[in-house]
Each structure stands twice: as C-alpha cells, then as structure tokens.
Nucleic acid binder design. Structure first.
Lengths: 222, 222
DNA sequence: TGCGTTAGTGGACACCGTACACATGCAGGG
DNA sequence: CCCTGCATGTGTACGGTGTCCACTAACGCA
C-alpha cells in the first residue's frame, strides 16, 4: 500500500510481501502464509515472489523474523514498566519477570504472530536476522539473556549457574505460552491465565537459583 | 499388513490407516500424514479413507491420540525404574521426576511422534480418546496428575497449591521438549540435553511448592 | 540512444484434499 | 439357495497449492 504500483515494477516488493505475509500470519498463523495469497494481496503474479525468496519456506522465515521483532517490542514494553525503586536484586528479579510477562502477554494477544515467531525455521542459522529485534536492537532471546546477566550482577543467581539458564527460564515460559495458545489451556480466561503465569514465574524465580542443599531424592537419571 | 487384502473389502481399514499414519508421523511429523500417502501405503483408493474419517484433520486426530499413547508408555517405563526405597516424600519426588524424564526422553527419541502427539487437535474435546493411554490406562496428562497427587499425599506439595500445578510442571517440561525438538536446542547433544533436563527438573522440584516467604520484589502485574 | 540486467508475467505440471456418482461383495430374510 | 440392502471401496473430477520454464517489460548505465 505504501508502494507505488503505477508501473510494471513494484519498487519494494520484498518488503511488501513480508508485510502482507505478516498480516496473514496475524490472523491465521504460519500455515496461512501462502505464496499465492501473499502475492494476490500485493497485486502481483505468484511467481514474482520467487525473485525475492527461494521458496515459501524462505518467505516464511522472513515473516518469522518480523514476528520475533514484535515479540521483542512487547517484552521491551513490559520492561519499561518496572520502576527503578528497590534494591538491585529486587530490580533484577522484576526485570526477569517483566521479560516473561511480555512474552506471555504477546502470546495471548497475538496468537497467530506468536505461533509464527516460534515455528522455528528449518535452518537454525537464520536466527540472527535484523528484523527479529525490537526497538533496543535486541532479539527476544537476547533480552532474556540480558535480564539473566543482571540477575547475576545483582548477586541473585550464582555465576556458576548462569550458563544455560536462558533455556531453563525460556522453557518454562515458552511451554506455558504454547499450551495457552494452541494447547489445552487455550480455553482459559485471560484472568485465570494471568494467575497461572504469575505462579509459573514464581516457580522460576524460586527454583532457578540452585540452593546449597541438593535434596538427596533427585538423582540424575541414567 | 496384518490385514487381509485378498478381496475388495479390507477388514479393518480404519486401524490400518491409523497405523500407516503413525508410521508417517514417526518420520515426518504431523505434516507428513497425508490422506493420499496413507491410503497409498495401505493400498487403497484415497477416498476410501473418507468412509472412516470425516477429513484429514480427523485422521490426524486419531494418529495424535495414538502418539499420545506412546508418550504415556514412555512415561510408564520411566516410572517403573524408580525403586521403592526411601521415605514417601523422596519417592513421590522421584515419581514426578520420572514422569518428566519419560516425557523428555520420548521427545528426544521420537521427535516426529512427539510433535504429532502435541499438535493439539482443533477441538479440545477430542482429548479423551482411549488410544491416548498407556498400559496403565492413563494418558500422559493423567500420569502427571497422579504424580502430583502423590506429592500432596507425601506432604511435599501443600494441598492448597495443588490445583493447576499440572500446568506449571507441564509447561516447564513441555517447553524444554519443544525447544529441543523443533527449536534452537535441537542441535544439542543428548548428553548436554540430559544435563539441561536435570537442571530444569531441579528447578521445578525446588520451585513448585511455594515456600512461606513470598519475596516482596515480585508483585503481580496489572 | 542503445543495451544488459533485473523484476514481473503467463502457462504448465505435479501434488494435495475432497465431493459426487458408481461398483463391489458381505449379511440377512424370503 | 437366491435375492436384495447396505456398508465399504473405486473412479473421475474440481479447485487449491508450490514451483519450474520461457517470455516480456522497463530501469539504469554506457
């Protein structure tokens, strides 16, 4: 729409295709991003897309990055809400919590885009696209990592526990998000879902830093 | 294969279609369960499937239930390994951990089936199919619920915290499983993944029962 | 002004899900 | 024993999809 189509050439077809794809993904998730429909919306022949994307998968990857950027923006919005009061430890914990809340809120409010953002591309290397960042220039994953670094600096999380902690926190939040978006929790009212989210974040906050005593009952398996 | 195809009628086509679909899902995940391919494998015309399933989605639901049954079996196998020694609390914790380990192990060893099992059906009501149970007759979700009940009986988890606890534990484990199967953790070696799984289960074990002191820094959002 | 490169078009092919009309052969009543 | 009804599988066809190929338009540089 922002692009001229007075003439044979489009001007910035690639961007237009991504935007149309994002609109479709917003409503119908990744499976709604069809080459033919996207080109139809832009008013161009189906094959024109192949001048800019190797195949449907490549187009979807681009839309995916765009959606991840939207997730990052949602997380940043929640981060902006934490007030600077309190001690460093409390602030760091609040920042980690805000990251999780932003993630979950986005999943709830934009299920189509959320599913698209985390229907991970076939080749992992594509993860680092510039589109997948928010206003701060950080991707969702980087925002989480940064929050965990703060937690270490504040002395809440032992530095030895830091490596891999992204994946523990991310797992918990991502699991709830997917269960809420596509899974059995999708019928839940936003009210109850928020309550569950708060309990989950309590669990992470409480369980992420390993306390000194490892209970003897839990031995590693195999 | 176990069914006669000496004649026009098949005998038990419905079951044969589900089994073929499961084989396909094992290799290629839910998107590999195509009506045409399934019928091709059974040696029957594509439309024959429509005598037994309303549409592709219905067939996929049946395969999904079957896959959930396989998950339940994996969880039961892991439950069978916990030895009866120790106090009730330790045993209950070990059972919850076994449930999680079985889930994660299945995700790692059968990614196609795992993705199929938890690409939730369009209508949630279909959740309660008899196929989705393991040898004990319990579905994965029911096995988890039962483990949590044990945790309450053993006095580890306060009864007041019990409602909804399934979803907290499930979220954490399911999140790690999906990140490991389709997400950025899929490149991880089984060794490192097991380590991550153990840390995650530690986190759940430590964080699930809410301790008395709620840290003042984490206030509910909104 | 002319020409090469880039971007978009048109038509075709294989594959998918699925609706409709038809063929088959098993089961039960005369 | 045969006939008939009905469940089950077949054949054909339609619209949709992704994507290949040859073709064309027009932009930008010499």
């Amino acid at each position: 729409m922002t692009h001229r189509r007075d003439s044979y050439h489009h001007g910035d077809l690639r961007r237009a295709l991504i935007e149309a794809g994002t609109r479709l993904a917003r409503v119908g998730g990744p499976e709604a991003v069809l080459v033919r429909e996207v080109t139809r919306q832009v008013g161009v022949a189906p094959n024109a897309a192949y001048r800019h994307f190797a195949d449907r998968e490549a187009l979807l990857d681009a839309v995916c990055s765009q959606a991840q950027g939207a997730v990052a923006v949602a997380m940043e919005a929640e981060l902006a809400k934490v007030r600077a009061k309190g001690d460093a430890a409390g602030r760091a914990r609040a920042r980690l919590r805000a990251v999780g809340i932003g993630y979950l809120r986005f999943a709830q409010e934009e299920p189509g885009l959320f599913r698209t953002a985390f229907s991970f591309p076939a080749d992992l290397s594509r993860a680092a696209s510039p589109d997948s960042a928010g206003a701060s220039g950080l991707s969702p994953f980087q925002l989480l990592s940064s929050a965990l670094d703060d937690l270490v600096d504040a002395g809440v999380l032992p530095r030895a526990q830091r490596p891999g902690a992204e994946f523990l926190a991310w797992s918990a939040v991502h699991g709830l998000a997917t269960l809420a978006v596509t899974g059995p929790l999708r019928a839940l009212s936003p009210r109850r879902l928020r309550s569950l989210a708060n309990r989950l974040l309590d669990m992470v906050d409480r369980g992420l830093p390993a306390t000194a005593d490892l209970h003897s009952a839990t031995r590693p398996v195999r």
